[in-house]
Every structure is written in structure tokens, then in C-alpha cells.
Amino acid sequence: MGDEGVRRELWDGKIPVCFKLDEDEVTMSIRGDRVAPQPCYMMIPRVSYLPLVYEKLDKLYSRAAGRQVEDEVWVSAEATPLKWHYPVGVLYDLYGRGQNLPWEITVHFRNFPEDILLHCESKEAVEAHFKSKLKERVCYQQLLFKYNYDEFWAVNKKMMLSTRSEHEPFRSIPFCIYQACCTDGKILFQRLLPPHRPKASPDDQIVENTLEDIIKLYSASFPLTEEHCVLIHGIELSVRTPIQWLSENLSYPDSFLHICVVHK
């Protein structure tokens, strides 16, 4: 399979999900017995986000749940509220992996956990969020093209191990790392890394940065053991994969590499 094929496969990656209304929230009853509405099955693209289905869930379950005006849809996997601003694929790799499919997600209208989840009361909220994410990416790019290597590295020297040279052309690759071990699961680490190591002298061979370099950076702050594995789009990759290739082919639509650290 060529790279184009890889990109297409990833784009088409979907997760079978079974949505069920939280039993405690069912208010619909027939002759005094509470009646839970039917679960709803959907294939959700890994590269998409949960608010895409919120409207549908709202339509399906708001009556059965006796939804009030101020209520807001939110979902959880087991007891963990799912952050809608993370890609579905990331949420699945963190909380759904290893379980039977379809992945069971519970739908709620009450008790919005506002200490954990961003509010998502309108399409504007979702749009604003992703615009700002994209702007961040554009900002990375502008910084990288506008300013020279020295200025850039003065800031980011922590990220790299080797010496630097001036005015070397580069582009930088943004990535986020998530780890589920911490109860609330959050972006633990958001950085950028150029595709090549800086050359000590112009005659040096170009050395590509690989997934291993990303892992090294990360594990300096968050120690990893043999029990851990690193997934992108649910795939465990060779640590020797160059990050340039990863970025070109495995980035999510927001152009970040979203990397999950999970237990084997």
C-alpha cells in the first residue's frame, strides 16, 4: 500500500459505538414502569469529534430523559466523561481499547461535569474551539517561517539534544501526547519537533527525527515502562518511523499528531 492508501485507510477508520441513555436519567414510563429507550448504534470516524452526533443524540433521547432547557448533552465511557474536543480515535484508544465492540457510551443530560468538560452548548462553541486549534497550528508555521533558526532554538532548545547551526531550513511538527493512566486523561505534553536533527557542521549527514525521539522527550517528563505502548490511530508503530512521514500521513485533520500512551 502506498502512502496515499495509508492516508485514505486512516481517514476511513471508524469505530462502532453503542449509545445508551443513562438509566438513572430515564423518566419515560409506561403504566408506571420506567422504559429505557433503544440504544443507538453508529459508526463514528476516528478523525471526527463527538459533537457531530450530539444533535442526533439530543433528538433521540431528550424526550425519554425529560430534558430541561438548560440541560446539555454529554457522554461518558464507563464513569469517565469524554472530552468532546479530543478526536474520537484518541478517546477510543484511551478508554475503549481492549473492550468488546461496539464501544458502549452512555448519554447524559443532567449533572454536566463542568469541572471536567468544556461546555458545548452551540455549534459556535465547537467551531471556535477548532478555529483556535488551527490558529495555533498556523501560528507555529508563521513563527517557524518568520524567524530564524537561532531564535527558534533559543526557545525550544530544551526539546533537542544536539547542537544547532544557523539558517537551516526546517519545518516543525506539532504533536500532543495523551496518557490514560491519570484518572482524568488529558493532554500531557504538547510540543513541536523539526523533522531533522540540527547538523553540527554543514558536512554532517542529515539525521531524521523518529518516533523514538518524541518518546524520549516525553519520557523525560513522564517515565515509561515496558508495560506501555505508544499508539497513533490505534496503531503501534515502529519507533524508527521518521516523524516527517508520521506528520504527512498520520496527522489528524487539525494537523497535529495525536499520540496515545496506553498500557499493553
Partner: peptide, 23 residues
Amino acid sequence: EWESVTQQEHPIFGRPFYHLHPC
């Protein structure tokens, strides 16, 4: 309004916080 103050995940605590867009 959506270009100025919005909710974001706090970069250190991972909790929802309001933030002034820095672009």
C-alpha cells in the same frame, strides 16, 4: 466574542478555564 474569550482546557491542570485568545 468567539474570537476573544472562550473556554479551553487549562494547559497544566486539564480543567476547563476561560482564556483570552493569544493570536
